[in-house]
């Protein structure tokens, strides 16, 4: 593409003619890089570390897709997007997929013409308050000043919640998490609201996390998931089933520890065999080699391992699995079968 950038419209058109007809999968293969849209920085989900390397839960999904398609988890170009730019970036083809804790809603799916390929995190909007405020329920927040990190559906849920409970509040919308924290910590707002996972991630960075409590009310459903452009079903399938492969692998007990052994030859469980490509031709149907899921799993392990490594209880963010446990453990994660 660099060429097209510097050699005028004529060359652009010439190059484009070749590229336009092909689908996203072929584009990605031809490019050798996956362009994945992420947030501009939310610790635990997607944030560059001190060396500038992207780390996080959403990042792991991108890497898994890149590994499945290109056999290289590092063949990802992470494109930081804001709440404003993310949809255009996806719609205009600047990114191939968006993994930016984006809530699956009707209008985004139908009106904005995107395809949500599944849910990688079941979230909900929560409230955080300083402990010494003595608030134990969000319904006691009448008249409070609320800092909102804009971007997802946060503002709308907040308005609905306070309206439904007939209490008043003063919204302070803020673009970045860092600035919202700054205001919250200085007491410029009483409450900080965003997705519960984000609250936990934010609280983890505080000097004294124990001085702040997350209120029990979860005021919205926020199913967050990766999304792709409407209409490119092959690519959508690929992203969807890569995510499902991560989830199914956990359900079936495939971990990064036993992955190599299980993938070496067909074992006793036919579903594991189909997943790992030692049986059947599921990979071929996706237009990928048979061991695509093995590659995806080799990056960071299965869903559970990715969760624990990035946002789980052992990390500073310390999120419990909760709704994001497998359906067999009382959670909501339920991948369709690999068959």
């Amino acid at each position: 593409m660099k060429k097209s950038v510097f050699f005028g419209a004529a060359t652009v058109a010439a190059l484009a003619a070749g590229a336009a007809a092909a689908g996203t999968l072929d584009d990605v293969k031809a490019r050798g890089k996956l362009n994945c849209g992420v947030t501009t920085g939310l610790v635990g989900f997607a944030a560059p570390d001190a060396n500038g390397e992207w780390k996080g839960f959403d990042v792991a999904v991108c890497r898994a897709v890149a590994a499945a398609v290109l056999d290289d988890p590092n063949a990802v170009e992470f494109v930081p997007t804001t709440g404003k730019t993310r949809f255009t970036a996806l719609a205009s083809g600047e990114i191939d997929m968006l993994a930016r804790n984006t809530t699956w809603t009707f209008s985004r799916d139908v009106d904005l013409k995107f395809e949500f390929t599944g849910i990688n995190y079941y979230d909900g909007q929560g409230f955080m308050v300083p402990k010494d405020l003595g608030v134990s329920s969000a319904k006691e927040l009448d008249g409070a000043t609320v800092c909102i990190q804009t971007g997802t559906t946060t503002e709308l849920n907040l308005a609905d919640f306070f309206r439904a409970n007939n209490i008043s509040y003063e919204p302070v919308p803020i673009e970045t998490n860092a600035e919202a924290q700054q205001q919250y910590l200085a007491g410029a707002c009483d409450v900080y609201t965003t997705d519960a996972s984000g609250l936990a991630a934010t609280r983890a960075t505080f000097e004294d996390p124990s001085a702040h409590v997350v209120l029990p009310e979860i005021v919205s459903k926020e199913p967050l998931g990766p999304l792709v452009r409407h209409g490119d079903n092959e690519w959508g399938d690929l992203v969807r089933w890569t995510l499902n492969a991560l989830i199914t692998a956990e359900e079936l007990g495939v971990t990064s520890a036993n992955l190599a052994e299980m993938a070496a030859s067909a074992g006793g469980n036919p579903e594991i065999n189909r997943l790992l490509g030692t049986e059947g031709n599921l990979g071929e149907m996706l237009g990928l080699p048979a061991d695509w899921a093995v590659k995806a799993l080799a990056v960071g392990g299965n869903y559970g391992e990715i969760f624990e490594a990035n946002i789980g209880e052992a990390t500073p963010i310390g999120l419990a699995r909760g709704l994001n446990a497998q359906w067999t453990d009382g959670g909501l994660l339920y991948s369709p079968p690999f068959r």
Binding site: S92, K113, E155, L156, L158, A159, D160, R163, P171, G231
Partner: peptide
Amino acid sequence: RAAGLNISYEFLGNPSGYDINQTLVEYDSQ
């Protein structure tokens, strides 16, 4: 057309759904 979108200003008539902290005229989330 490729993205299946159109240009339409109908959204301006829909309820905004969010609140604003500093307003000079009557305004709420509806």
